[in-house]
Each structure stands twice: as structure tokens, then as C-alpha cells.
Design a protein around this nucleic acid. Structure first.
Lengths: 217, 217
DNA sequence: CACGGAAGTTGACGCCGTCAACATCGAGGA
DNA sequence: TCCTCGATGTTGACGGCGTCAACTTCCGTG
């Protein structure tokens, strides 16, 4: 525990402490989720006294919130990567649906491959962010949510979705993917379900979602 | 804080300390979620020294886990109540679908009305429970899950669901309802979405799920 | 070149979970 | 009847946590 990762610095001042603390905190979150982001441990790893962090963060919770938003950004990246990897040729409706599906896959890939960061991204917001700022902003304006919303618009425009089902579809769809991620990572399905079963129900869950969104009744 | 809730006891021994601690812990969880279940505070409220709890729980985490399972049981009750309230007359298919819908409503009612307990029910399992015991048992054998599974069987038997979609439907459906509950209680949708909007997307989410499950292709 | 403020340090406080050692009480055998 | 012994509580202490006040170091600017 608490092994310093960098050689002890030479000068009294660090020079880039804020970033160093963030990097260390993100690493801890990656390995152990939000609970692992412990101020004193973060400082220890950077080789600095615990209270030094207070020159850059108003409280430990603020540091966690920064990590949280970094994790959210990485999640958005994972989704975007998956969506962009879908070949754009072929029937526009098929492409739109494939891209939507890919967004769910990217979401779940991140949840499984970066479980600690995923948990941190959705842990309780500790600080109150002022209304106007980037972090106080409604989740509906976040990068990931906007992307998902755009993908649904594509599906609608391609005629693969009944217009009366468009409204609220972001949240309904998000709920399903997120719920599956939560239940199968830190949740009750995490430990007792073998991996191949998880892979099956993962596809099942996405299939069911797409079926609900694109059914033609 | 720390106001004792009962008159200071008269005898050296409490007599029913384990239950008293549990009640107090459940109350704290109800008000503040899993993080509010603090061993010293629980003991303080019961009017007993902190270490007395160690005669009944091996560690603080064990106490939290007990609360967790109590909360899970209450969730199952809420679902059951909602399902039983559905009138059983009319077309069997309609009844089966209505009961399935009611289970989702009962789930979400609990999440919104008892947010602290809901969060506690799904917080990370702190202790390792031995394989065979009631608490080490797979979630798939829990009361709530079994009930949900039975409701899906009813829908299938009533011919309102294509058989090839039955497999894995518990988890897919559970994911959607759970995801919505998580996102709108402690999650990012909790603070910024007004209540009437929540009510709309709540129905939307359930509708989408039922549509996916019962669509006739 | 002095000097003022930004960026680190030390030491302390109260909170937490936990342990070891001690105190109290009630049930059951001598 | 009394004695004892195990179950159940208590006290005091330890280390770890977040945080504050007071002090120190160093760099950029006038």
C-alpha cells in the first residue's frame, strides 16, 4: 500500500501538482472504484503531504468529482469509438440501427473493461456545482447523452422507428443499458453469473431494447 | 446528531441488542442510504457502547449487509403488493401483462419512496457470504427475481410473448427498470429532471419494455 | 533586490472501525 | 443456597481518515 510511484521530487514546489493528483486519483478509481479515491493515499503516491491537495481542491469530494467527470468523458469516448467503427455503407436504416447498437456495446465495453471508472462515473455527486458551470449542467447536455440522442434521430430519420416512440427514448434506452451494466458489474448479477451467460443476456438485453424501439406494429 | 431514541436502559444487559441495532441501522439507511449506516452512530442511538455491536456482528460491514438484505426483502414486498392489487378478471393475456407492468411499478415505487433503502439494497456487498447460506445464494433465487420470472411465464402462457424471447427476459427487463430507478434516484437524472418529466419517461420506459417483450413482429 | 503571495509542510482535532482487557449479570450444577 | 462461568457490555487505546491553523519555502514582479 501507499508505495510512491515517482521518485521523490527535488524542489520544494512540485510544479504540476494538480495534474499529478488527478492522475493518481484516476488510477486509484480505476483499480478500486470511487471508495479507493482517498485523499491521503493520493497525496502519498504523489509524494506530497496530505494537506497540499487543499491548494488545488477545496475538499476531498471535489477531487472525487473531478475524477467522476473524467470517467464520464472516457465513457463517452468508448461509445464514440464503437459507433465510428460501424461501416457506413449499405441501407441507411441498417446503418442507423447498427450505430445505435454499437453505442450500447461501447457503453457496456467500458463498464466491463473499466469497471472502477464506470462506477466512479455514476457514483453519487458529492459537491454541489453552481448552476451555470460545466459540471452543474444537466446530464441531458453531456456528450454521451447528446450522442445517444443523435443516434436515435438517425434511426427515426431512416424510418426505422415510429415517431410517437421517439420522445423519451433516450432515457428509456439509457436505462436499459445502464441497468444491465450496473447489475452485472457491482450489482447482484456480478458474482454469480458465469461469463458466457453474461454474454448471452447482454445480447438479449440489447436485442430487446432495439426490438422495443424499432417494432413496427 | 446522535440523539438517543430510547430512554437509557436500566439493566447492564440490553436483552435484545441485535434487533435494536438492526432497527436503528435500517432507519439510518432509510434516511441516508448505505453511507449513513455508521456503527458508532447506530450504537449511540441504541444507547450502547460502540464495541457492544461486536457481540452480534463480526464487523460493521456485516451490519450493513444485514440491512441490505432487509431492504431487498422490503423491495420484494413492494413488488408483490403492486402485483396483487391488479384485478384478476378479464382477458388472461391482459391480466398477465398488467401484472407484469405492476411489478415494474412496484419496483419503481419502492425506489422513489424509499430511496435510502433502495440504494442500500443495491450497494456493493461488503462481506463474503459462504456459498451455501441464504445470503451467499445467487440473486436469481431471490424472492423478487423469482416473482418477476413467474410473471414472465404467465405472459408467455397467455400467448402474449413469442417463446424465443422468453429466455433471458428476466434480466433484460430487470435491467431496464433497475437502470431507470438508479438514474433517476441517485444518478445523473435525479437532480435536473422535474417530477412531471420523470413521470412521463417512467411510463415511457415501462411501455418500451413491454413493447419489446410482447411485440408480435 | 526585496518582498508578497502562491504552494508546500507540520501538528493537531474529531471522527471512524477495531482490538484487548476488564466488568456485570444470570443460569445451572455443587 | 451459593459459586462459577460464559454471554454480553464497558473502557481505553490504536491507526487511518478528512480538515484546519500556523508556519516555511520559493518564484515572479515592482
Amino acid at each position: 500500500m501507499g508505495t510512491p510511484k515517482t521518485a521523490p521530487r527535488t524542489s520544494y514546489h512540485h510544479g504540476d501538482l494538480r495534474n499529478a493528483l488527478m492522475d493518481s486519483a484516476v488510477e486509484l478509481a480505476r483499480l478500486g472504484g470511487p471508495a479507493a479515491v482517498v485523499l491521503r493515499e493520493v497525496a502519498r503516491r504523489v509524494g506530497v503531504s496530505a494537506t497540499a491537495a487543499y491548494r488545488h481542491f477545496s475538499a476531498a469530494d471535489e477531487l472525487v468529482d473531478e475524477v467522476k467527470h473524467a470517467a464520464l468523458a472516457k465513457l463517452a469516448e468508448s461509445i464514440e469509438r464503437a459507433v465510428e467503427a460501424v461501416p457506413a455503407d449499405g441501407d441507411p436504416g441498417d446503418v442507423a440501427v447498427a450505430r445505435l447498437r454499437a453505442s450500447a456495446e461501447g457503453y457496456l465495453d467500458f463498464a466491463f473493461n473499466e469497471t472502477g471508472l464506470f462506477q466512479t462515473a455514476f457514483c453519487r455527486e458529492e459537491m454541489e456545482h453552481p448552476e451555470g458551470t460545466e459540471k452543474g449542467r444537466p446530464f441531458a447536455e453531456s456528450a454521451a447523452f447528446q450522442m445517444f440522442s443523435g443516434l436515435l434521430d438517425e434511426v427515426l430519420a431512416a424510418g426505422r422507428m415510429a415517431p410517437q416512440w421517439r420522445d423519451g427514448a433516450e432515457i428509456a434506452g439509457w436505462s436499459m443499458v445502464h441497468g444491465f451494466a450496473v447489475l452485472t458489474t457491482d450489482g447482484p448479477l456480478g458474482r454469480h453469473v458465469p461469463d458466457e451467460a453474461k454474454a448471452f443476456i447482454r445480447q438479449r438485453t440489447i436485442d430487446l431494447l432495439l426490438r422495443g424501439l424499432t417494432a413496427t406494429d
